[in-house]
């Protein structure tokens, strides 16, 4: 059973095709992620699915309902956390959750959703006095108040410190365990790899890759990445001739060598460094990630 069905979605802002023919399905109980840089069209896509924006083309079905025809029955069954929401500043956590509870027919107990996002200690704190991470979790609590079938999280961890991010990940994992469908956007590849059953990698309004995170990596790479920065910039052409090297990429002063023979490549690289009398800074050997997938497909890093 599909929770969300999007076909050939288009949104145009002036000369910009912000969303340019996006299609995908999200199954019930799935955690589905859209991964891409800022301005790739993630939020626009999300808000069109939520019924907050009118698309310029394509069709959207949520839980079997046509969003473009009538969004009202869907609103009762989805929960939304917008990218930025500041709510009434001087209302407390409990007051805000209670307020939103009053908008819905079926709701979970107020204290239960506050517990789901671990905000029990902040029930009587005004929203303006919450930290960034706590405020995001409050936004998620509000998104959960109507016990929704689908939860939309738009960049839930942007701007959060690592600890707050991990805390948010726990919340999402719990939702998954409860069998909820989660649709989230992010520009953190680690987040997508860790949370999502499937990921759509988007750039310039188009899906450039779609699938399970590990499958996406394996489909694109059977190599290992060697990464370093180097002041004199060892020429790419020279690096490409080292044994085992498949590809070399240079981005923001960071050189990434994709190798099928780590030992051979590393030895040759070290010999080269010694010979050129230069230094490598931040030399690491790591497995390929979604970041590498994005880099391979677009020639850019996600966080640019």
């Amino acid at each position: 059973m599909t929770a969300i069905q999007v076909e050939n979605l288009v949104k145009i802002y002036g000369p910009l095709r912000a969303v340019d023919g996006i299609s995908f399905d999200v199954a019930k109980g799935e955690v589905f992620g859209m991964l891409g840089p800022n301005g790739a069209g993630k939020s626009t896509t999300t808000e069109m699915i939520e019924g907050l924006r009118k698309p310029d083309g394509g069709s959207i079905h949520v839980l079997g309902h046509d969003v473009l025809k009538n969004v009202e029955p869907i609103k009762q069954r989805i929960g939304i956390q917008l990218q930025t929401t500041s709510l009434f500043q001087k209302l407390t956590t409990r007051e805000l959750v209670k307020l939103f509870a009053s908008f819905y027919k079926n709701t979970l107990p107020v204290d239960e959703v506050i517990g789901l996002v671990n905000l029990e200690e902040k029930v009587n704190t005004a929203s303006k006095d919450l930290s960034g991470g706590q405020r995001q979790r409050l936004a998620v609590a509000i998104a959960l108040i109507n016990d929704p079938d689908i939860i939309f999280l738009d960049e839930p961890t942007t701007g959060l410190d690592p600890q707050a991010r991990r805390s948010m990940w726990d919340v999402v994992s719990n939702l998954q365990k409860r069998g909820k469908t989660v649709f989230l956007t992010t520009h953190y590849m680690e987040e997508a790899e860790r949370l999502c059953d499937r990921v759509a990698v988007v750039d310039h309004g188009k899906i450039i890759a779609l699938g399970k995170p590990q499958a996406l990596i394996h489909d694109n790479f059977d190599e290992t990445a060697l990464e370093f920065s180097n002041d004199e910039q060892l020429p790419e052409s020279l690096l490409a001739t080292l044994p085992g090297v498949e590809r070399v990429q240079n981005e923001n002063g960071i050189t990434t060598i994709y190798s099928k023979g780590v030992a051979r490549t590393t030895n040759a690289l070290m010999a080269l460094v010694e010979q050129q009398q230069t230094e490598l800074r931040g030399f690491t050997i790591r497995a390929a990630t979604l970041e590498d997938v994005f880099l391979k497909l677009t020639g850019r890093r996600i966080r640019d």
Binding site: E50, L52, E72, K75, I80, T85, L87
Partner: peptide, 13 residues
């Protein structure tokens, strides 16, 4: 400007 109206629009209110 703070998106409160937008957030309300996303509810059945």
């Amino acid at each position: 400007t703070q998106g409160v109206l937008k957030r309300f629009n996303a509810t059945p209110l």
